[in-house]
């Protein structure tokens, strides 16, 4: 802490005896993995709240897609109620896709991903933390907003819990599948169309089971079976998608 200009020779003389002690790198105790992941999650959340305008965009997009259908088809609530599951899920799928492009892009650009890859922590876990932040910022708000969209399509309020549950669970799987596509398209300019081409086919099972669960929620049927299938997809995604996304991130850094 002496003046910056002081020659390093003095420092050498003072510190050299320390060099052989095992405690020299005591300051470098690796942080526990969970702390690191929590910090990565908190960082993304804090950054998102600094740019609140961007947070609203997928939600506004979702609301707009929902609005297109009454205008394009018919304002009759009976007909809208029939297509409501499809409208909700197509809207949720597209809205979550819209937000995916930003999942890794800034971090790749400013070198954060590089630092994560070299942090000595499991990159898979850090990527999982980032994806979790992404879900908290897009999937969860979409799940909370889906009932509003459903009500505007003439769905009765008894269906609300089922709709929230199915969109919440399904969007977990969507975020995870999307993280693979987002990581693979890193470094490609104007990657939006390609990202959709990669992600949508892989997301179709989520769409199928999610729309079915929503349909059953609206008609008052037993929706446990499709909900369980959705949950199975989400669990499969949690176990495999971060691995693939981390591999893709590493490849993008090569």
């Amino acid at each position: 802490m002496s003046g910056y200009g002081s020659p390093a020779a003095g420092v050498v003389a003072q510190a050299a005896p320390l060099a052989r002690q095992a405690t020299v790198w005591a300051g470098s105790h690796q942080a526990p993995l969970l702390d690191a992941a929590r910090l990565a999650l908190a960082r993304d959340l804090q950054l998102a709240f600094r740019k609140r305008g961007q947070l609203v965009q997928p939600l506004a997009f979702f609301a707009m897609v929902t609005m297109l259908f009454p205008l394009a088809i018919s304002p009759e609530l009976a007909r809208l109620r029939e297509i409501a599951p499809g409208v909700l899920w197509a809207g949720a799928l597209l809205a979550s896709l819209l937000a995916l492009e930003f999942l890794f892009r800034d971090d790749a650009y400013d070198g954060t991903l590089e630092q994560y890859a070299l942090s000595g922590q499991s990159l898979t876990w850090l990527i999982f933390a980032k994806t979790a932040a992404h879900w908290l910022l897009t999937g969860l708000p979409l799940a909370l907003m889906a009932p509003l969209a459903a009500l505007s399509l003439g769905v009765s309020d008894a269906a609300v819990p089922g709709i929230v549950a199915s969109v919440a669970v399904g969007s977990v799987a969507l975020s995870l599948i999307g993280s693979i596509g987002a990581a693979l398209t890193l470094g490609i300019k104007r990657s939006g169309a390609l990202l959709s081409l990669l992600t949508l086919p892989l997301s179709l099972p989520v769409l199928i089971f999610g729309a079915r669960a929503t349909q059953l929620a609206i008609s008052g049927g037993p929706l446990l079976a499709p909900l369980e299938l959705l949950a199975a997809l989400a669990v499969l995604g949690v176990t495999l998608a971060p691995l693939a996304a981390a591999a893709a991130v590493r490849i993008s850094l090569e």
Partner: peptide, 8 residues
């Protein structure tokens, strides 16, 4: 955040 991900 940057250093904290690595160590305490």
């Amino acid at each position: 955040y940057w250093i904290g991900v690595r160590h305490r």
